[in-house]
Nucleic acid binder design. Structure first.
Lengths: 160, 160
DNA sequence: GCCGATAAGTCAATATTACTGACGTAATTT
DNA sequence: AAATTACGTCAGTAATATTGACTTATCGGC
């Protein structure tokens, strides 16, 4: 593979800065209207997403994914629990743990937010085609750090 | 192109949520250490980037790109001007405008921040290869809105 | 069974980034 | 001359994040 020796030129990397800024801005914006109706923000959406994708996740594992402080997460989590979107249950082997999961209402809300993001994502994927999507995956995986890449690999294994 | 009829399945779209979160998180984090040393934040970096890529940009055009309010930008811009990273000059045809550009120090700082992001981007691009990068571009362009796509197309035309 | 380490929650204070709405000034357009 | 535009600014507020210290309950090793 001779292309792996070709150094990406600076203009390519400049473009990537723009792509990441705009795509992330508009992708996250997609769910904002639905969130604002409920008085919730993006931090709540992120928590809902990762709890929904990882039912029974511990607080410390969630902290490790989000990379925010315990205090920042505590506010978001207690609001989500007050409103009945998230519930806790003590760990079966380790009772210090409070395993997090979405309630029925939480699943419904998370799905609604996901649908708004699908509206942006689905046309982009269809227009770009499967090969482009595979390339997108490879580049995005390469940008994130090792721990994040391990998470993605574990959750979205090839034959999954 | 039969693949354009294939609907992306939900697991693909779920993966995209993870990819966007982690790649954006780690990409933006890359410049944070250098920013923190100077007491600056990501908002300052974003302004430096778009002024640097668009010398002479007007305040309202910059507002349209960043999609923040005038007040949020004002604070960031005045800090950057106080510290001598950004300067203004009146528009030649329309003297109401304050055209923004980086000073020598601003160019140096922006380049330093860019280098930290290159450290993440360059290995990802090299490992993924040119075809993957092209796919990455197509998908990311598809996710952003029309105005953002027009900006990217104008700034990074095929034969550029 | 004791004891250090761990999981989680909490308190207090603060910073960054963002928002809304209103108002003022200068320059341009009609 | 009047309306509009570009920019700046003031006041108040909200969401998200931070650091540091402290408590409670539980676990694991000795």
């Amino acid at each position: 593979m001779p292309e792996s020796k070709v150094d990406p030129v600076e203009t390519d990397l400049r473009m990537a800065q723009d792509l990441l800024f705009f795509a992330y801005r508009d992708f996250t914006n997609a769910a904002d209207v639905a969130l604002a109706e409920l008085g919730l923000g993006r931090a709540h959406h992120r928590a809902l997403h990762f709890i929904g994708r990882n039912p029974g996740i511990t607080v410390s594992d969630l902290l490790g994914i989000l990379r925010i402080t315990k205090q920042s997460l505590a506010r978001v989590l207690s609001e989500l629990m007050e409103r009945g979107y998230v519930a806790q249950s003590p760990g079966s082997t380790d009772r210090r743990q409070r395993l997090l999961h979405l309630t029925g209402a939480g699943i419904t809300l998370e799905r609604r937010l996901f649908e708004r993001q699908q509206d942006r994502l689905r046309p982009a994927y269809r227009a770009a085609g499967p090969d482009a999507v595979a390339g997108f995956r490879r580049v995005m995986s390469g940008i994130m750090d090792d721990a994040a890449r391990a998470y993605v690999d574990a959750h979205h294994a090839k034959g999954d």
